[in-house]
């Protein structure tokens, strides 16, 4: 048996077990690889197309309709869809299609800004609390609990009525800003908790220990190690919250303290339509359909982005 094949040295003798793995993975870091993955996902393109259409609708509504969404004709109240008004008319005889198109801008503005604001404020606070720990964590967590303890509707009423007398007509920019800020102030603790839990978990991982042993500073540890590994749950949260926030905006409008005439939003349309659902179903159905499509598009986008940026899923 001495004439058998020479043995390999253990060092450098590992067979290429990962040979079957997709070689295109791993070209150049998290962002480049993530984008390369993203580009290949049909889900991403479907979601992006839908979002693009919605954005165009919001920016240039006149491309889609030339009807003034504010023109009311009580004689046509609750009219069925017809060539004149393709989706029918609401209780006050306004064109539902035109209103839905013009409602895109305020709705998307509120949804996007509120999601963005909540995530930015909440995630930042959570990141700091989870990474620094000790008294910073205690302080941020307690403050967060105070805000999270406020019931949303009650908090909304208090904040918005403080700034605006009920029934007063206020400008579009002003009311949108106020609604967004109200939502952010009342919702950031949710994002903070998610981020804090994730940051706490990740900062216990051995690779963070190894980076610290190498002399890495806090910025590097947070930026390179903690943030990329905590992004997934926050991203999912943000896309789901987008839908929730549009609903919240509608709830505030229904109470008469959120967006209101002359501003049109899908939330405003839905809340107006509720009273006469049985008689004029189209007034509820069509804005709701727009809302569902928008929420789905953002959820799909979030899903695709999360998967693409997880190397383990490839």
């Amino acid at each position: 048996m001495t004439d058998t094949a020479p043995a390999l040295r253990a060092r450098g003798a590992e067979p290429d077990e990962a040979a079957a793995v997709d070689e295109s993975a791993g070209r150049g870091g998290l962002w480049v690889d993530g984008w390369a993955q993203l580009r290949r996902r049909p889900l991403f393109w479907i979601a992006s197309t839908l979002i693009l259409v919605l954005l165009v609708m919001a920016l240039w509504p006149s491309l889609f309709t030339s009807v003034d969404p504010r023109v009311a004709d009580l004689a046509l109240s609750g009219a069925d869809p017809s060539p004149d008004a393709v989706l029918g008319r609401d209780l006050q005889g306004r064109d539902i299609y035109a209103r839905a198109i013009h409602g895109a801008a305020p709705t998307l503005t509120v949804g996007l800004l509120a999601s963005l604001g909540t995530v930015l404020v909440g995630a930042m606070a959570g990141l700091v609390a989870g990474y620094r720990g000790s008294w910073v964590d205690g302080l941020v967590s307690r403050v967060g609990e105070v805000f999270a303890g406020l019931p949303f509707i009650l908090g909304g009423i208090v904040i918005l009525t403080t700034f605006n007398q009920p029934g007063r007509i206020v400008g579009e920019v002003r009311i949108v800003t106020q609604v967004v800020l109200t939502i952010v102030v009342l919702s950031w603790p949710l994002a903070m908790r998610i981020m804090r839990a994730a940051a706490l978990e990740i900062s216990q991982q051995d690779y963070v220990k190894a980076a610290r042993a190498l002399g890495a500073g806090p910025l590097r540890i947070v930026g390179r190690h903690i943030l990329p590994n905590t992004l997934a749950p926050v991203l999912v949260f943000a896309t789901i919250q987008f839908g929730v926030f549009i609903g919240a905006e509608a709830a505030l409008s229904f109470l008469g303290i959120g967006l209101r005439d002359p501003v049109v939003s899908w939330g405003v349309m839905i809340s107006e339509a509720q009273e006469r659902v049985a008689d004029i179903p189209q007034a509820l159905f069509f804005p709701a359909a727009f809302l569902v499509v928008a929420v789905l598009a953002f959820v799909m986008l979030g899903d695709a982005v999360r998967d693409a940026f997880d190397p383990r899923g490839r």
Binding site: M1, T4, A5, P6, A7, L8, R9, A10, A13, E14, P15, E17, A20
Partner: peptide
């Protein structure tokens, strides 16, 4: 030397042969 085979791609013949000196 080497690693145990992946169970979805067990080597042909004796499963140990890629690591076996004989």
């Amino acid at each position: 030397p080497g690693l145990p085979p992946s169970l979805s791609a067990i080597p042909h013949g004796c499963p140990f042969h890629p690591r076996c000196a004989y």
